[in-house]
């Protein structure tokens, strides 16, 4: 009698399959399942009550959810674009530095080394309306206004965007700088010989070369920013009056404070669409940009 043996490739992959199943697949299936139940953390029995698409219907008709969704898209768009512009500017300037560039590169990365929670606390203090740094500076310059930085809708969004940009612009700068280092010199020299202006050189040679790097940075940061939570939670908690409510502050409150994990998971699945859409968009753009500089394939 011969024993049936599992194929070798399967046995070799088994540890990886088990690990991935345990840490990714099972939680994923579990959370997807629970999004079809009224699962409350404090009432474990609710996990076994199937309510079909009730949670999804509730979300789709919930103005507060869509307001948070829209705000997240706005936050994402503004933050990504500003980070790109600033990062590009910093990278171009850094590229011209000939002495001490390594030290500068290290200093540039300092903000990324802080925990986002601490960055949140730091800016919460800086923008505090009563004892904050910004208002104190304004008052010592003669203004008697106590600007409600974290209360006024626009100012509060500005404040959290400022904190987010402060912390992560260097991601763009570093990736774009890597692109600048990898750039061949010949086209630039040819452009010089042909009499291109610096702007023309930048627009038609440097920028197309950098685009693949920019889109990679965009993809990474879009996923990062779309799940912005820590800074926002610390600085405003999504308030006041939901003026700075983003998807993740809403979801965490629903899941962990209200204990409505089923509903929170459903929100998670709907909002994942946002990340998927952004990722697909940037990957397409990435392929197009690579094709343009002859790197397609």
């Amino acid at each position: 009698m011969t024993r049936r043996r599992l194929p070798e490739w399967f046995v070799l992959l088994l540890p990886a399959i088990v690990v991935i199943a345990a840490v990714v697949l099972i939680p994923l299936i579990f959370s997807l399942y629970s999004s079809f139940t009224p699962y409350k953390l404090t009432r474990p029995s609710t996990l076994w009550r199937w309510v079909g698409t009730y949670n999804y219907e509730k979300i789709l008709t919930d103005a507060k959810f869509w307001a948070a969704f829209g705000r997240t898209v706005l936050f994402l768009t503004v933050v990504l674009n500003l980070e790109l512009l600033l990062g590009l500017g910093i990278a171009l300037l850094m590229n011209r530095v000939t002495w001490g560039q390594r030290t500068l590169r290290t200093i540039l990365m300092f903000p990324m080394m802080f925990s986002p929670i601490l960055v949140g606390f730091q800016f919460k203090f800086i923008f505090n309306d009563n004892i904050g740094l910004v208002n104190n500076v304004l008052q010592s310059l003669g203004s008697d206004a106590a600007l409600p930085w974290l209360v006024d809708g626009r100012l509060a969004m500005f404040s959290i965007m400022f904190a987010e940009i402060w912390m992560s612009t260097s991601v763009f700068a570093i990736l774009i700088l890597a692109g600048l280092f990898a750039m061949p010199r010949d086209p630039l020299e040819a452009a010089k010989v042909d009499g291109c202006t610096p702007w023309q050189t930048f627009r038609h040679i440097t920028l197309p070369f950098l685009m693949p790097f920019i889109y990679i940075a965009m993809t990474i940061r879009s996923l990062d920013v779309a799940r912005a939570y820590d800074i926002v939670q610390i600085m405003t908690g999504g308030g006041p009056a939901r003026r700075t409510e983003l998807l993740w502050t809403l979801m965490s409150r629903t899941g962990y404070v209200d204990a409505r994990m089923g509903l929170a998971n459903a929100m998670g699945y709907v909002s994942i669409l946002l990340s998927i859409l952004f990722t697909i968009y940037f990957f397409r753009k990435l392929s197009a940009a690579r094709a343009e500089i002859g790197m397609a394939g």
Partner: peptide, 19 residues
């Protein structure tokens, strides 16, 4: 607790003049 999470942003909205 859950009602308070629903109610507090509305109270804030009235306080800051949104509603």
């Amino acid at each position: 607790g859950e009602t308070t999470n629903i109610v507090f942003p509305e109270l804030q909205a009235a306080i800051v003049g949104d509603k």
